[in-house]
């Protein structure tokens, strides 16, 4: 079948802005986006640039945006994309500077990875943990070690898009992977560093990273685990941590979220911030949007209290 593929072309050294070019070629059921790109490069336009190596979803080189979604070109079918979107538009990964066509500068990605000390920190020459015991940590890793460093998650990350200081999903999944490694002797130091701006509390839980990861690393779920570990280790004073602990407290007492009481509790130890939010609270009050922070809890709260009480046991 004859298919049309639209590709974003751009060369940082010669072009003012990107342009879209259409290519027509024969494709079959077995044609992947990578095969199509190789065909275009060899038969139609040798100047087309992209990274690729293993062709088997292992090396992570060929991630790009295919119909606006971060995917490995080597395991994305041309026909499936046409079925799903009715078109094929290819561009470079977002959130990273474009060098040429689909080739991006991955320096921001690698910088983030390095920030979290992505290795076992140990003063022992040999592991004090027996090999047999290491096998049991597989479950605790939750697939966090399956990352192929393709950059899809950082490219799709909604938080990184607006806040380049955010360390991002891949690096945090790595941080989690080494945080639960029994050979690691860094203790809570890595975790403590991640409480700062740009750390775990910058994640907005948009779930994009979970969705685009080609290896089911589910970075956001590892970020959630790091958050849980932080609170359990007593690092619970950030507004992000208080969002969780005080949310649980309010629902545990009232059965539902009280949207006026939660901010008060979250910001109790951050008075400056509390004062900053007062004008908005007053506006909400005038529009009938502010519920009373204290008062009789809604129907059903007794049952919820019983559930929470049972859980504590």
């Amino acid at each position: 079948m004859r298919v049309e593929i639209t590709i974003q072309r751009y060369n940082v050294e010669t072009d003012v802005k990107p342009r879209f070019v259409d290519y027509c070629l024969e494709a079959g059921r077995e044609t992947t986006v990578l095969l199509a790109l190789l065909k275009i490069k060899s038969e139609m336009d040798g100047s087309l640039s992209f990274r690729a190596s293993c062709r088997a979803a292992i090396c992570g080189s060929c991630n790009m945006q295919i119909n606006g979604v971060q995917k490995l070109a080597c395991n994305t079918s041309v026909f499936d994309e046409l079925d799903r979107h009715g078109k094929i538009v290819i561009g470079p990964m977002a959130n990273m500077p474009v060098i040429k066509d689909m080739v991006v500068d991955m320096a921001p990605f690698w910088d983030k990875i390095r920030q979290v000390k992505p290795y076992v920190v140990s003063h022992n020459e040999h592991s004090p943990v027996p090999t047999a015991a290491l096998k049991t940590i597989q479950d605790d890793l939750h697939n966090a070690d399956a990352c192929i460093m393709c950059g899809a998650c950082l490219s799709a990350c909604n938080s990184f898009e607006v806040s380049p200081e955010f360390v991002g999903p891949a690096a945090l999944a790595k941080a989690y992977r080494f945080q639960v490694d029994p050979r690691d002797e860094i203790g809570t130091n890595r975790l403590a560093q991640l409480q700062e701006d740009g750390g775990i509390w910058d994640c907005v839980r948009c779930v994009y990273c979970v969705q685009v990861c080609p290896k089911e690393v589910a970075p956001m779920e590892q970020i959630v685990r790091l958050r849980r570990m932080s609170i359990q280790s007593g690092m619970d004073t950030t507004i992000g941590a208080r969002h969780i602990t005080q949310f649980v407290k309010v629902v545990g007492e009232e059965g539902r979220l009280n949207e006026s009481r939660l901010p008060l509790l979250m910001l109790l130890k951050h008075l400056g911030k509390l004062i900053q939010t007062l004008p908005l609270a007053i506006k909400m009050l005038f529009r009938g949007k502010a519920v009373m922070p204290f008062g009789t809890p809604p129907q059903g709260h007794e049952v919820v209290r019983a559930i929470f009480k049972g859980r504590k046991k």
């Binding site: 509390w201 507004i239 901010p263 911030k273």
Partner: peptide
């Protein structure tokens, strides 16, 4: 989700 904790974002 980060309305209070990360106002800038």
């Amino acid at each position: 989700p980060v309305f209070l904790e990360k106002e800038e974002i």
